[in-house]
């Protein structure tokens, strides 16, 4: 049993993997994630890939909203920009995937920078509306700039190839998605151990005092928008290689809201929470669906009442979270961990 956890240097205090136990568990998680695609079927792999893409995108939003305190309702549109950039890179320019993914991030980053400019003047709900405008405008561009985006029919994208092997199945694309997701999770975790990340948090906590401390608000807010939309763009680019088609219908306002829900349910300002949130928001509806499917044979006539019921349940669960655990899944996870740290000697 662990009886003490003494740190003798600042470096140790700030380490990502603080104790041997954490290292062991992270290793186990990594191993499990490597084994998973070999044992899981198509359906589970598809869900896992969906979660992977959502994690990358939601990390971006959490950096902006959870860590810097700037709300955005246009996140799905930035994902879309990244998707289109990568799709055009892959089809018209014939670029390989390892260039298309950063390309998607970079183009989304430029879009995010432009949209981020008003953030210096407007805050809170006003910023929400400003970013909402970005969502609407970009959605319109996707479906009407036919010569570039292919209009409503979108663009079909060939699978990524790694030394001649096409990543055309869920199994193969899993490794691409999670390699990117792991790298971006690591980067996000590290970001908040740097001056820049600290500046983001300071702005979130009180922008006026951050400015008094010598943080250039404009610069860091824009930087946060840039990082956030870069993440969104990368998520979009990875999505393209996963879905192999991109149409405007993939990036509606409801996706932006779903990203916000992931961040809030998972935990604002928590990397771990983002991951838990993405898993929760993807898997719980599927589980509820499996539940209704299981009782379907017993109520063959009640389908049209039973199916919507699960949306109501899902909604109730989210409201429940907001009321009973405003810090999100990340906080629940911490509580569980604290409980087991002393288990079974204290309950």
């Amino acid at each position: 049993m662990r009886i003490g956890d003494f740190k003798e240097t600042y470096a140790a205090d700030e380490a990502i993997f603080r104790t041997p136990a954490v290292r062991v568990w992270m290793g186990a998680l990594g191993a499990a994630m490597l084994v998973f695609p070999f044992v899981a079927g198509d359906y589970l792999l598809y869900l896992a890939n969906l979660i992977g893409v959502m994690i990358i995108g939601a990390l971006g939003l959490n950096i902006l909203t959870g860590f810097t305190g700037q709300i955005s309702l246009g996140h799905a549109a930035f994902v879309g920009v990244g998707s289109y950039a990568a799709a055009i890179g892959a089809t018209r320019l014939g670029l390989p995937f390892y260039l298309c993914i950063p390309l998607g991030g970079a183009v989304a980053c430029v879009a995010g920078t432009v949209i981020g400019v008003p953030s210096l003047r407007v805050k809170g709900l006003y910023l929400a509306i400003a970013t909402l405008a970005a969502q609407v405008i970009l959605e319109w561009v996707f479906s009407n700039w036919d010569s570039v985006t292919g209009g409503i029919r979108g663009i079909n994208v060939p699978p990524a190839t790694v030394s001649g092997v096409p990543l055309d199945t869920d199994f193969r694309v899993y490794f691409l998605i999670y390699a990117v997701a792991a790298a971006f999770t690591y980067f996000a975790r590290n970001l908040f151990r740097t001056r820049v990340g600290r500046a983001f948090i300071a702005i979130r906590d009180r922008d006026i005092s951050a400015e008094l401390m010598g943080i250039n608000l404009f610069r860091y807010k824009i930087l946060s928008f840039m990082v956030s939309s870069f993440y969104a763009g990368v998520a979009g680019a990875v999505w393209v290689y996963f879905a192999k088609v991109v149409t405007p219908e993939y990036f509606p306002l409801s996706l932006s809201i779903q990203f916000l829900a992931i961040v809030i349910v998972g935990g604002l300002g928590s990397i771990q929470g983002t991951i838990l949130g993405a898993i929760f928001m993807t898997l719980v509806p599927e589980l509820l669906k499996a539940g209704t499917e299981a009782v379907k044979p017993f109520f063959p006539d009640a389908m049209s009442y039973l199916f919507p019921l699960r949306d109501i349940l899902f909604g109730a669960m989210i409201v429940g979270f907001l009321i009973f655990e405003p810090h999100g899944l990340a906080e629940m996870w911490q509580r569980v961990k604290r409980y087991f740290a002393l288990w079974p000697f204290r309950s």
Binding site: D42, Y43, Y46, L47, N156, P159, D168, A243, V245, E249
Partner: peptide
């Protein structure tokens, strides 16, 4: 996801889909 789930669980020889979007996404 539903398409893949049914294919994995039941391996039907005929499928029915809910939208143009699914038709395009599942085509490859």
């Amino acid at each position: 996801a539903t398409f893949k789930k049914i294919m994995a669980k039941e391996t039907p020889v005929i499928m029915y889909g809910d939208s143009t979007g699914l038709g395009k996404a599942i085509a490859p």
